[in-house]
Computed example of a mutant assay.
Amino acid sequence: MEVPNLSDIFSNARCIAIIGCSANKYRASYHIASYLKENGYRIIPVNPNYEEVLGEQCYPSVADIPDKYPVDIVDIFRDSRYTAEMVQQIIDWSSRTDQKPVIWTQLDVSSEEAETLAEEAGFPYIKNECMMVQHERLM
């Protein structure tokens, strides 16, 4: 599959779901979610440990995100051993909602299995890139 153009992804995105988003302000996921929100993106935190992150309702899983939200990117902050499971959840959610967001894996989060799952299901897949660094560099 062709590598997606990151500038186009950022320019066209409005809503970013963040799997593993933390309410702990010292965690990278909190810092990056805050940065994305400050830069005009709607963020949807996904973490079963919180009810709210950065003033936004937090959902236990991707499957719990209401269908009314068009999600352009799903950013994954989980250990790489869970990434394939997260990608499968995104694929399952997508089949219910008819959405096909970009799947973005943060640094050291991607796995071969996750990448294969995403590509076989036709999802754009960004691997092992910091979304904030790339956004700052390109935008």
Rank of each mutant, 00 (worst) to 15 (best):
78 R>E: 01
30 Y>S: 01
107 L>P: 10
45 P>H: 05
6 L>N: 05
119 E>H: 14
102 V>G: 02
23 A>H: 03
21 C>A: 15
75 D>R: 08
106 Q>Y: 07
48 P>H: 13
32 I>G: 00
26 Y>F: 12
50 Y>P: 00
83 T>W: 02
138 L>F: 12
137 R>V: 08
9 I>P: 03
31 H>T: 11
6 L>R: 08
123 F>A: 10
139 M>Q: 12
18 I>D: 01
81 R>W: 11
128 N>G: 15
29 S>C: 05
60 P>F: 06
28 A>S: 09
70 P>G: 06
97 T>N: 12
56 E>F: 04
59 Y>L: 08
45 P>V: 03
73 I>C: 10
127 K>H: 08
108 D>W: 06
138 L>T: 07
114 A>F: 02
13 A>P: 11
27 R>M: 08
96 R>A: 14
103 I>M: 06
115 E>L: 13
28 A>H: 04
89 Q>L: 07
132 M>S: 08
10 F>K: 00
24 N>D: 11
70 P>Q: 09
61 S>I: 03
113 E>H: 08
105 T>G: 12
125 Y>V: 01
89 Q>E: 14
46 V>H: 05
14 R>F: 07
5 N>E: 13
16 I>W: 03
12 N>H: 13
91 I>W: 01
93 W>R: 11
28 A>K: 03
67 D>E: 15
31 H>K: 13
126 I>T: 03
72 D>M: 07
72 D>G: 08
80 S>V: 04
125 Y>N: 06
14 R>E: 11
131 M>L: 15
6 L>C: 10
1 M>R: 15
35 Y>A: 03
71 V>I: 09
89 Q>Y: 03
132 M>T: 04
111 S>R: 02
48 P>G: 14
122 G>M: 07
82 Y>H: 15
34 S>V: 04
105 T>L: 09
39 N>M: 14
104 W>L: 01
71 V>C: 09
33 A>K: 03
129 E>V: 14
53 V>Y: 02
121 A>D: 07
79 D>E: 10
10 F>T: 00
137 R>H: 11
104 W>M: 02
58 C>I: 03
56 E>W: 04
99 Q>K: 11
3 V>S: 15
32 I>E: 01
80 S>Y: 09
8 D>Y: 10
87 V>A: 14
44 I>K: 09
46 V>W: 01
21 C>H: 06
32 I>W: 02
23 A>K: 03
105 T>H: 09
28 A>Y: 04
138 L>W: 11
2 E>K: 13
7 S>F: 12
88 Q>M: 12
72 D>N: 10
7 S>I: 07
51 E>P: 00
34 S>I: 04
112 E>K: 13
101 P>C: 05
27 R>H: 07
